[in-house]
Every structure is written in C-alpha cells, then in structure tokens.
Amino acid sequence: MDRNQLLAFYYTITLGSTGQAADKLGFTASWITKLLQKLEQEVGHQLLTKKGKHLVLTEKGDIFLKDAKTILDQYDLALKKMQRLSDRAEGAFTLSLPPFISSLWLIEAITPFLNNNPQISLDIKSLRETPDFKAGEVDVDIRNINPLFLNQAEINAHYLTTYKFRLYASQAYVEEKGMPQSIHDLDSHTLISFTEDGLFPHTYEPQAIKCKQHLIIDCPLAIAHAVENNVGIGPLLPHIARLSQQSVVPILHNQLRQSLNIYYTYPASLTQNRMVQDFYNYLQSLPEDFLKGRETLMAKR
C-alpha cells in the first residue's frame, strides 16, 4: 500500500469520481482505477461499489476511509515537522492572528520580506482563540497574551508592540448625536464593538454598557470605515484615527480604553528554526506601527 493508492481512494470518494480524482492528482482516470484495484487487493476487501454512474463506499470502505484520512494527515504532519527542523529560511509555515489584528496590515508590512524570500510559503489564519501548538495547528501566533501564564519550556514569547484602543466617533456624528460626557450617556448612542460582551477586542469580563444600537464587527478596517461614515462610536487605534480621511474625535478617553501587549509566540521546538527566527527579526526591524495600519494602506481604502 502506498500513498498514491490512499490518495486515489480518498479523492475518488470526496470529489465524486475517478475522473475528478485524476485531475486533482495529475494522473489519468485509468491509472486511478488501477490504483484502487491494487488497494482493494492489498486490503483484502471491496472498498467501492457502483451505484448508477457513481462509485460509493461499501460498509468496509466507509471504515477504511476514516483510517486512510488519518494516515494521510499524519503523513502531511510528518513532512511539516521535518520542514520545521530545517536550518534554512525556506519551506512553508503557518501564522495565526486574532481578528482584531488585520491580516491586510500584516501583509502590507511583510511584503518586502516575502519578496526577498521567494522560497518561503506562508499560510495566514485568523483565529479567535490561542492555537494549539502541540497539535501542529500553526507554527507562529501573533496576539495579546500574558507570557507569565505560558509554559516557557514549551512556548517562546517575544514582545512586538502594544495596541492602545480608544473610542472615537466622526465629527459629523458628534454634531448630530451629541458628545457623551459619561458612560451613562452612551445609552442614547450607536456603539460599534469587536465582541458582544465588550467594546474592545479582549474581554476580561462582560461589560454591561447600555446603548441605543449595537453593531458587532470583528474586523478593524470595517470598524474604522463605520466610524468614518458616521455610523456610531467605535474602538480605534490612535494611529488609525490620526490617518483617518474623515475628522474623528475621541470619546471618553479617560474612562473607556484598553491596552494589549502583542507577542510573537511559537513552540520551543522551533527555537533553532531559521525561518521562524528570520521572520521575527524582520518584524522587529519594522516601525512601531507596522501591525496597526500603514499610511499607504489607509489611503487606498
């Protein structure tokens, strides 16, 4: 039994035909059929049967499919682990961010790095929760964490920057709706927030703030756009507020705000990985506001 046999079996079922499996794998349909026949011979059971024009799983084929998927996943994971052990800045790695850190801002910031390292492939994921490094979910995670709560023998954490969220509204919105003087005044306003439980990205405990209307948007660019378009009061980074194409004003800055320390984290097993280290060194060399929106990107919006 080889990997091509398992792939032929898996994609024939998941894609619906030997023809589509052949297209996926770059083989001919007749070769896929031969791989399936050889697989059934080695397994000693019929795995597929015809139902009309389609191949479907037999009862034993259904059992084998789950094991085949596990084997293929383990093979891919083993390859990825070997790539991580490379002492060269090459290969593929996965990076995760929380929704409040815009992947658009990150991509703009790291484009020179990617252009200078064409041998590197990057998969960026937006994850609300901290990823599971042990399961190999990602290689690097960038988000707000408290390094004191980490197992330092298993996870490395390096400080990158601090997000200082404040509330803002457009000048036009304030002229129409009035300037809130206290938290209680917000009950007559429209609030825009990252989560249902709080105005800011990270909610330590639910905040019971009353408002006339509540909009939940987990994208910082969309929140900035909503504030600029007079929709309501929302959390922005001061850097973004300064670059706004519309006049925006601070709201209750001394009463409602949040600062989040952002760290570059990765499993200790990647401490010697050249790619992970080179990427961190590059991020460190960028301006303080590289993860908070760049002037060129804001101008394009």
Score class of each variant (00 low, 15 high):
Phe149Asn: 13
Phe149Val: 10
Phe149Ala: 13
Leu150Ser: 06
Leu150Val: 09
Gln152Ser: 14
Gln152Phe: 13
Ala153Ser: 12
Ala153His: 11
Ala153Trp: 11
Glu154Asp: 09
Glu154Met: 02
Glu154Ile: 10
Glu154Pro: 00
Ile155Asp: 01
Asn156Tyr: 09
Asn156Val: 14
Ala157Arg: 06
Ala157Pro: 04
Ala157Trp: 04
Tyr159Gln: 13
Leu160Gln: 02
Leu160Ala: 02
Leu160Ile: 05
Thr161Arg: 04
Thr162Val: 11
Thr162His: 05
Thr162Cys: 03
Tyr163Glu: 06
Lys164Thr: 02
Arg166Glu: 03
Arg166Ala: 01
Arg166Gly: 00
Leu167Ile: 03
Leu167Asn: 04
Leu167His: 02
Tyr168Trp: 02
Tyr168Pro: 01
Tyr168Gln: 07
Ala169Ile: 03
Ala169Cys: 06
Ser170Ala: 07
Ser170Gly: 14
Gln171Lys: 15
Gln171His: 15
Ala172Gln: 15
Tyr173Ile: 07
Tyr173Thr: 07
Val174Gly: 08
Val174Thr: 14
Glu175Cys: 02
Glu176Ala: 15
Glu176Arg: 14
Lys177Tyr: 11
Gly178Ala: 03
Gly178Lys: 11
Gly178Tyr: 12
Met179Cys: 09
Met179Leu: 14
Pro180Gln: 12
Pro180Met: 10
Pro180Val: 14
Pro180Ser: 07
Gln181His: 14
Gln181Val: 11
Ser182Leu: 06
Ile183Trp: 10
Ile183Met: 10
His184Asp: 13
His184Val: 13
Asp185Ala: 09
Leu186Gly: 05
Ser188Asp: 14
Ser188Tyr: 15
His189Ala: 03
Thr190Trp: 01
Thr190Tyr: 00
Thr190Asn: 01
Thr190Arg: 01
Thr190Asp: 06
Thr190Gln: 07
Leu191Gln: 11
Ile192Val: 12
Ser193Thr: 01
Ser193Ile: 05
Ser193Glu: 07
Ser193His: 03
Ser193Pro: 07
Phe194Arg: 03
Phe194Val: 09
Phe194Leu: 03
Phe194Ala: 04
Phe194Lys: 07
Phe194Tyr: 10
Phe194Gly: 00
Glu196Arg: 11
Glu196Gln: 09
Glu196Tyr: 05
Asp197Trp: 04
Gly198Met: 13
Gly198Pro: 06
Gly198Thr: 12
Leu199Met: 07
Leu199Cys: 00
Leu199Gln: 01
Phe200His: 02
Phe200Tyr: 07
Pro201Ser: 15
Pro201Phe: 04
Pro201Leu: 04
Thr203Phe: 13
Thr203Ile: 14
Tyr204Lys: 08
Glu205Asn: 11
Glu205His: 11
Gln207Ala: 09
Gln207Gly: 00
Ala208Glu: 13
Ile209Cys: 01
Ile209Ser: 02
Lys210Gly: 08
Lys210Val: 13
Lys210Asn: 15
Lys210Phe: 14
Cys211Ala: 04
Cys211Ile: 03
Cys211Glu: 02
Cys211Lys: 06
Cys211Val: 03
Cys211Tyr: 05
Lys212Trp: 08
Lys212Arg: 12
Gln213Gly: 07
Gln213Asn: 12
His214Phe: 06
His214Glu: 04
His214Met: 12
Leu215Ala: 10
